[in-house]
Design a protein around this nucleic acid. Sequence first.
DNA 1: ATGCCTTTCCCAGAAAGA
Length: 258
Amino acid sequence: MRLATWNVNSLKARLPRVEDWIGRYEPDVLCVQETKLADDAFPLLTFQAMGYEAAHHGEGRWNGVAILSRVGLGDVRAGFIHDDDADPDLDRDARLLAATCAGVRVNTVYVPNGRSVDDDQYAYKLAWLARLRSHLETVSEPDHDVVVCGDINVAPDDRDVYDPEAFAGETHVTDAERQALADLGLSDVFRHIYDGDGMFSWWDYRAGNFHKGKGMRIDLVLASRSLAARTASVLIDRNARKGSKPSDHAPVVVDFRD
DNA sequence: ATGCCTTTCCCAGAAAGA
């Protein structure tokens, strides 16, 4: 199965690029973040015409996540499962969507940014990641292959930022964020294939950062152990960051052996 | 060259991104 994830930074603005990219990479499953669309504005017919089923969880101006699949799309769930002990505010944004595709429980997430470590949004980000962990523990089924993929907004270690010193004390690289990511108990499939640094999935639009190689690897495919062991290849498609009107994120493509 | 921010709300500039 070929699974891809891409923060498109507005599906409305990016639809021509997304259509073109799907045509060339032919993913079985494509997870999309930051659609910035209401559900009734999601271009379902466009994707159906390309042979995909699709589900979208959106709110309009911000956030929004989608799953496209040509290998089945079952048991779609938007947001967290109800929990009397959890803060309902953690489910206010459209940041989580799940579906079962070819036997894999696929969760796509758009983790809150955090803004800065002294901002309320940083505490919200950590709480959201903890809520994701408890949600996954509640809904997980034994021996079921699970993927959590998307814009994780955490660089797993210092190889995943262009200059660790430049990020010292900033959000995306703190021990607390990295621990919250590790606590999900899933495997970053990229690291099954590559050990090196400097391989990024996001570059700031400003100051020519893409062209200077100044990025971060924050778009991840996390998999349960048995599925991660079937990782055949991982690609971050930097070419999708080039040219006119790109997203600031590149797609990540993973091929899993059957 | 891969090129110096982009998108949303909607017409002005704020908010958000990471």
